[in-house]
Amino acid sequence: MTALEAPGQTLNAAALLARRPWGLYVAVGFAVLLLVAAVAPHLLTSRDPSALDYPAALQAPSLTHWFGTDESGRDLYTRVVFGAAISLPIGLGAAVVGIVLALLLGSTAALAPRFIGAAVDRLLEVMFAFPALLLALLLITVSGPSAISEVFAVGLGTAPGYARMVRGQIKAAKGAAYVEAATALGHSRSRIVRVHILPNALRPLVAVFALSIGQSIVWASSLSFLGLGVAPPSPEWGALLDAGRSYITVTPWLLVIPGLVVVAVSIAATTIGRHLQSRLERGDRA
């Protein structure tokens, strides 16, 4: 109010808005490239990801082999491109599993009658006591390593954190002044939940979903890296890393490059997610 005028702030924000989001363009471009790799890998490479060529084994990156070759002479670039068709669906699937679980648990905790809500609260608390990776490992121990169990393991692992967020968002919206204003106007509770609470609380989840795809790909590749997910002959990115481990002193690019791809995916997802987030925060109001 009158006491604390901070004109500098508004100007800075305006300046930031005026700047072109180059980072976003790069991130979106990369995401499109990945989609192409997942859907039509032949557009990006003419080689076969499992074609063996022992004489050309363990070559450093060059013009013929952009990312080098592995111990059986397979072209790493081609394998990374083909890996997208495995890694992306796993990441996407895990993100969906995680968010759906989070929505169910989080909204029950926040909206259900008191005692049910409290019980789900406790359940979330218990789940949160298990770190994501350990929860995932617990599930994999039971179901055995496979792509499907990876999807559910990572989804289950990341769900508690998102569920807490969903719960917090809904509780905040429940306490918002506009909800009380709607109550005072005589609107029914179910209408208020439908019209005000859920839309306002769940809007940020769009951004969170984008972020969680990146995170899920990182987690899933970590599991494969440990040999607890998709197994090595597959070009899945974590499996590529796992396969490259024995050669770390000889051909570090076999580890560094697939890892870099995962990092790039995660950064791209984060960039897109954060952009969505700030768009949603400003909302259509701006």
Binding site: A177, Y178, E180, A181, A184, G186, S188, P199, G283, R285
Partner: peptide
């Protein structure tokens, strides 16, 4: 009470927070 609520309404100190931001 809901049916009678239109008979008594309220204006808050901070109108902005009392409007749904969407």
């Amino acid at each position: 009470r809901r049916a009678l609520r239109p008979r008594i309404t309220v204006v808050y100190q901070d109108p902005l927070s009392s409007f749904d931001p969407r």
